[in-house]
Design a binder for these strands. Structure first.
Length: 605
RNA sequence: GGAGGUGUAGCGAAGACGGUUAUCGCGCCGGCCUGUCAAGCCGGAGAUCGCGGGUUCGAUCCCCGUCACUUCCGCCA
């Protein structure tokens, strides 16, 4: 048995090891059989090493037996490859192993897809056979990067005095925000735990407990529809600090990100990260997560609209709206009417009524609504910094609708014209978020973020008078148009916390019932504290250049929340349900029909 | 919940006016081959064209429905 245990990995042997007898363990990666001479590549996590068989009897026997992805132990002698046969693409390319014996540790049936094959295998097949997929160079590298990022973060936070502390995954359901995943309690029939959407309440209580600095690479659960950048379960780098303010958190996070990018990618980030208030971000980019790699920005077109005889714009202004303009430089020829109407569709999805436009020529304004503004052409060129060959896109509506709609157009154009350079990392902070927004359902107010974020000091005495104006001590970290994380200074004063509940119309008894344990903790000398949470999967996705979160999670769910690997979620035995005092009302169960077949689970006989 | 895209051998793709023996590459099986590294050459097996219905003399192709995957909107404090 010890005969087959490896003495080297498949990635480490070089010319220095020539004449050594070695044992390698790994998988048959590729096989090249020349009849009288056979090569195969042996692969493990560390690399690939070429094995040669040129001694005849063994060869004939083995040649028929070796198949792709067999797991083997190969014993042989390291020797230099003949001149001209060196493979410069791999670190072990100078040498090869002259095989003396081979033990098959495990066989494999014909593969559903080749490891590192040329074809793009469909994601469902990859997920179903994830063990094969994970052997690929790309997946291996992403998992490695993920580990290194986590390790960098852990090292950094530990140096900074943070303690890694675990918080429960069976918690009290506090159905604010996203839907909770529920876990029935057998010992408390009719009652449920929830899986945490984040460790929010617990980390605040840790601060009340004098822990001072906490972090956790925490699993979080939200029962909402998945996307390329959203999984039902995901991982956050969650942290909280006592006696800290916004500047402490922002400085800490910038340092943490800089270290991670330096240590993992060897890349220096530009610091400090630019800061935009929520209002500036919305006004200039139409989103609270702008991709600053894309240079497009909005300008105010209202003064021109006021002077022109264009009814739609006039009406928008009269009803208190705005006209926003976006100049796309040197792009007029890219915008056919068809392209423009596609952009208009994007805008309409965000509630816009339409998208106006005109192009600049050497003579003046051309196309679209150009004729209404021809007289003002020189001023428009001057004010908006536009030149012939540019197109100007215009949006008239109430401020928020107008900027959000034009923001959707901006990001579509950015994608179409590839204005955001891949491989570049543009961080920014979005700060000064409003704390409350109108709740159309109740006519009252709803929290923009969550109810535990601190209103900025200047609003403390007057926030009930005009909730819409209240700015909170909230901040988002944005990278290349992705919300990477968010945080806030927390309310540590139970009286202030109760006033916030009042403003959002959250009955005190209910607050007591749901968050009583936190409010109670705040009463007992809880320190001022502030915290943050980084979406770790997203961070790794962006660092690795992957297009989907599913590429950086070892065992992800698909967009339906199904895991093709293990076939979860699945039906359970009636006895299990009974024990939990649960009864399914799903169609299949009600009708007593055969349980719906899960296509990913092999039939058992 | 809504809109779009995709679905053809184990994998990745092509296909047509509606009539073909349904094509190609990889993989698989058999044979040949002593310097390959996506090895090469010769031969072979392998497909209810996602599923159901309709139109038609005839449907993989057109129509309706349905399912699956995926992207976007809604949702995601």
């Amino acid at each position: 048995m010890n005969n087959s245990k490896r003495t080297a990995t498949c990635g480490e042997l070089t010319a220095k090891n020539i004449n050594q007898t070695v044992t390698l363990n790994g998988w048959i990666h590729r096989c090249r059989n020349h009849g009288g001479l056979l090569f195969f590549d042996l692969r493990d996590r560390y690399g690939i090493t070429q094995i040669v068989i040129d001694e005849s009897q063994e060869l004939t026997r083995l040649a028929g037996e070796i198949k792709m992805e067999y797991c083997v132990a190969a014993v042989g002698t390291v020797r230099a490859r003949p001149a001209g046969m060196i493979n410069k693409n791999i670190p072990t390319g100078e040498i090869e192993i002259a095989l003396t014996s081979l033990e098959i540790l495990n066989t494999a049936p014909p593969l559903p897809f080749m490891v590192d094959g040329e074809e793009d295998t469909s994601e469902t097949i990859r997920l179903k056979h994830r063990y094969l997929d994970l052997r690929s160079e790309a997946m291996k590298n992403r998992l490695k990067l993920r580990h290194e990022a986590a390790w960098s973060v852990r090292r950094f936070l530990t140096e900074q005095g943070f303690w890694e502390i675990e918080t429960p995954t069976f918690i009290k359901s506090t159905p604010e925000g996203a839907r909770d995943y529920l876990v029935p309690s057998r010992t408390n029939p009719g009652k449920f735990y929830a899986l945490p959407q984040s460790p929010q309440l617990y980390k605040q209580i840790l601060m009340a407990g004098g822990t001072d600095r906490y972090y956790q690479i925490a699993r979080c659960y939200r029962d909402e529809d998945a996307r390329g950048d959203r999984q039902p379960e995901f991982t956050q780098i969650d942290l909280e600090m006592s006696f800290a303010d916004r500047e402490d958190i922002l400085a800490l996070l910038e340092e943490m990100m800089s270290r991670a990018f330096r240590e993992v990618l060897g890349q220096e980030l530009t610091r400090p990260f630019p800061r935009l208030s929520w209002r500036q971000a919305m006004d200039s980019y139409g989103t609270d997560k702008p991709d600053l790699r894309c240079p497009l920005q909005f300008a105010d077109f209202s003064p021109f609209a006021a002077k022109a005889d264009f009814g739609v714009f006039k009406a928008a202004l009269e009803s208190g709206g705005v006209i926003k303009a976006m100049v796309v430089k040197n792009a007029a020829e890219h915008f056919s009417r068809k392209k423009i109407s596609e952009l208009e569709e994007e805008a309409k999805k965000k509630g816009a009524k339409g998208l106006a436009w005109f192009k600049l020529t050497s003579d003046g304004l051309d196309g679209g609504i150009g004729k209404f503004f021809n007289e003002q052409a020189p001023a428009i060129r001057e004010e908006l910094g536009a030149a012939p060959g540019d197109i100007i896109l215009l949006m008239a509506d109430q401020w928020l609708t107008a900027v959000e709609a034009l923001g959707a157009v901006r990001s579509k154009i950015s994608r179409n014209l590839e204005l955001a350079k891949p491989g570049e990392f543009q961080f920014c902070w979005i700060i000064d978020f409003p704390l409350f927004e109108p709740n159309p359902e109740t006519g009252g107010w709803a929290p923009v973020h969550h109810m535990f974020s601190m209103p900025q000091k200047q609003y403390h005495n007057t926030m009930e008078e005009n909730p819409a104006a209240v700015i909170g001590d909230l901040y988002d970290l944005v990278l290349n148009g992705n919300e990477l994380g968010s945080g806030s200074v927390r309310i540590h004063n139970p009286e202030l916390q109760s006033r916030v509940f009042d403003i959002v119309g959250f009955p005190r008894e209910e607050a007591q019932r749901r968050f009583g344990f936190l409010l109670e903790a705040l009463r007992y000398g809880a320190p001022p504290h502030a915290g943050f949470a980084v979406g770790f999967d997203r961070l790794v996705m962006l660092m690795s250049g992957a297009q989907s979160l599913r590429e950086v999670i070892a065992f992800p769910k698909n967009t339906q929340g199904i895991s093709p690997l293990d076939g979860s979620p699945s039906q359970v035995d009636a006895a299990q349900l009974e024990e939990l005092r649960l009864k399914s009302t799903a169609e299949d169960d009600r009708n007593g029909a055969h349980p719906a077949e899960n296509p990913f689970v092999p039939k058992q006989n």
